[in-house]
Amino acid sequence: MNTPSWTLDRRVEVIMDTTEASRVFDKLRSYKEVVLYPLPSTLKETLEVGGALRESGVRTSIEGSPFSIEPRIRREEMLNLPGVALVWDPRELTWNMDTKVKVEDALEPKEGQFVIGRDFPITDPRTGVLAYFLKKTTFVQFKYQKEVLSVGEVNGTIRDEEYLIRPNRWMTDMAVVKIKEAEKDQVTVNSRELFCRPLGSVFVPVNRKEMFDVLIGLRMRSSHFSLDCIKHLGEVR
């Protein structure tokens, strides 16, 4: 990470020229406002740092998108998922979940349990819970940028899915991004949509029916973006 290019009133702008996301997050979490500029090859780390900062209450912008934090909407009652076990291996900053969502520990998985990290091939609990619920194992992880588009690697198969979703850490709301193009092993999305509400780098692809299944079954909401972000996306003038 470069030395902050300037600071004023606890704001810092950072060029993400490193893949050490945890170190960057530790340095930035005490700032009031953070602007992140990814290099084409550090998209994943930028989304992880941006998501972790927003969920920590740090107003964050990626590449000129409007600042935002992630609203902290915590469940009032526990969401128990006894059929799910998790291999705890938080490799990325946003691979965590609020304690109000209860999954078992996968050290000694019970027979028939869906193990996040085994049956779902990464140890991200948020998308793992979606995968369990939707009975699918495909995920997309964003890795790099190509001009105004962000490119995600597909692990699995994209069929009729039109959107990518990633829950917040409280599993009450989500970021939704429309797939622009899907090829065999990669998808592209508009980077501005991805940067308006960063919550991490891993997403689950869904079709319209699956979206409603998740919202109803897991009791979640899809609240889109702030008005500033909608204006930024250029759709509302």
């Binding site: 920590s56 973006f225 972000c229």
Partner: peptide, 15 residues
């Protein structure tokens, strides 16, 4: 005048 679904200042929030 207009309340959107995305509300940053959730009354319950404590960071």
């Amino acid at each position: 005048k207009l309340v959107l679904p995305f509300i940053e200042e959730v009354s319950r929030q404590i960071y």
